[in-house]
Design a protein around this nucleic acid. Sequence first.
DNA 1: GTTGAGCGTT
Length: 453
Amino acid sequence: MDSDQGKLFIGGISWETSEDRLKEYFGQYGDISQTVVMRDKVTGRPRGFGFVVFSDPSVLDTVLQEQHTIDGRTVEAKRALSREEQQTSARSGNFNQGRNSGGGGNVRTKKIFVGGLPPTITEDGFRQYFEAYGHVTDVVIMYDQNTQRPRGFGFISFDTEDAVDRVLHKNFHDLNGKQVEVKRALPKDANPGGVSRTMSGGSGGYQGYGSSGGNSSSYDGRMDSNSYMRAQGTGAGFPPYGSSGYAPGYGYGPAGNGVGYGSYGNYGAPAGAGYGAPAGAGYGNPNAGYASGPPGAPRSSWGAQNPSGYGAMGYGNAAPWGAGSGGPGSAATGQSPSGAAGYGNQGYGYGGYGGSDGSYGNAGYGAAGGRSGATPNSNAGSGGGDLQGSGGYMGSGYGDVNGSSGYGNASWRSDSSQGSGNYGGAQSNDPHVGQGGYGGGYGGAQGRQAQQQ
DNA sequence: GTTGAGCGTT
């Protein structure tokens, strides 16, 4: 990755070796923009390795060819692996949440921690970049108290959760040509361990969900953590996501039949195909739905990795929605365009979930909504479901609320046999509109209306 | 001792 260009991993260093010493030693090869010696978080003892970043990446060629002895130890200099690389190659278990995992996500500040800032960044530049995502209420760039040098990170505050979600959807942002990393800021005052929002069943249907699973943290907290986001486009990040237990956490799955949520998968996938079709089937079997999915769709990774469904959902997949690519033809037709909104893509759901308030839905989904334009194509893809459905989905507001009602409603489960559409129930009236169902059920909104009526 | 931490006013 670009940001890691010029970065060397220095292994086997003496416990006596400090950042300054590294800089002094490697400085003979070129300008050093940063050095760090990793230490145990708890004991503070050096772990025996560190990193050196040269301003000019071409210096590495020379450095890598030579042997280096620092503080009496012959150290090993290697090109630093990106975190993604590390994950894929060195770990099999993936529950490692990395730093920040505890608590960051539980308390939803509207602030974002931005790491990896280029030293040249100005507050204005920082603010202007993020204003594209929403109204920025505060900007902070941190500097070393003594040296006044930029510390490489800062904070950006928004006035809405939506803006925060939009930023987080995309974990890597390019400021002044360098990629920076964004994470939800740790609450300064809150007790990290606590769960500030009511998890008890109350308001936010979603949270309830999550919590019910018994593992509250997974859903909420982890999400923000880096692993998920690391995706940087490669998709590599996904795995962790899924694996992290989202699904489980979500509770959904567990809840009933393990798969429950999975259905979503279909959902996502669907686009064409899927939705409807799947439904039934799909429901239970997320993968299936998925697989069937859109041509070329990248998703595969998802499916593969997470059988459980949620993941499958496609969060990631943008395409399907917007693009419409998929599916069976149908989708393709006109819809695509609107879909667009990238936003929707990715994440659509993601953020929402987290947001306890329901606010969530909007954004992402909304985007999707765009898609709705498409309306009718009926394509029917497979299953009979009408794509429109999708529209429904969105509309309804996944997020909005009450999730409980909709979502919870088991109805879908039972009905599953029938088909997809029914996710939400609503449609049951109108079979064609599969989607609607979905939406309704899920979000509640439609569902509710239907019921009332 | 060999692959990451940095979270607050400027």
